[in-house]
Amino acid sequence: MALKFLVVDDSVTMRRIVMNSLKQIGHENFVEAADGRDALIKLNSDDSINFIITDWNMPDVSGLELVKQVRANPKTANLPVLMVTTRGMKEDIIEALNAKVNNYIVKPFTPQVLREKIEQIISTVNV
């Protein structure tokens, strides 16, 4: 099954960098959301999304809150979530893992790291 990514970040620059990196590693199918609230709307309206890549620090609904809401909704509870954030402190990573993100990338990242984490998730989760 082809992957359709939802790229969530309030920074236009970061959304483009993530999407460019996805293209670079051979994934062309993605939609974007400017924050957690926008992401929830997109998830609600597009059932073909099967992979979420989200930032943490965003207005209204943060990335962490987005993950919690995704996990709480039976329709989206099993969607793979990769968090891409500037937050590299141990307690932050543990908090994200407690919210059940599947993997974690600390910015700045390379397309190779993105590929590695996506592959790790795919190998452990039924997408």
């Binding site: 943490w56 207005p59 500037t86 590299g88 402190m89 990573i93 893992l97 974690y104 600390v106």
Partner: peptide
């Protein structure tokens, strides 16, 4: 003030934070 931020955001390419994240993620596998 509606702009959210991480006050500890740093542009470092030493991968230390990524290694820490990888090790913590590995423990939750």
């Amino acid at each position: 003030e509606s702009i959210t931020f991480n006050e500890n955001a740093r542009y470092v390419k030493d991968n230390q934070s990524q290694k820490l994240a990888d090790s913590l993620v590995a423990q939750t596998n």
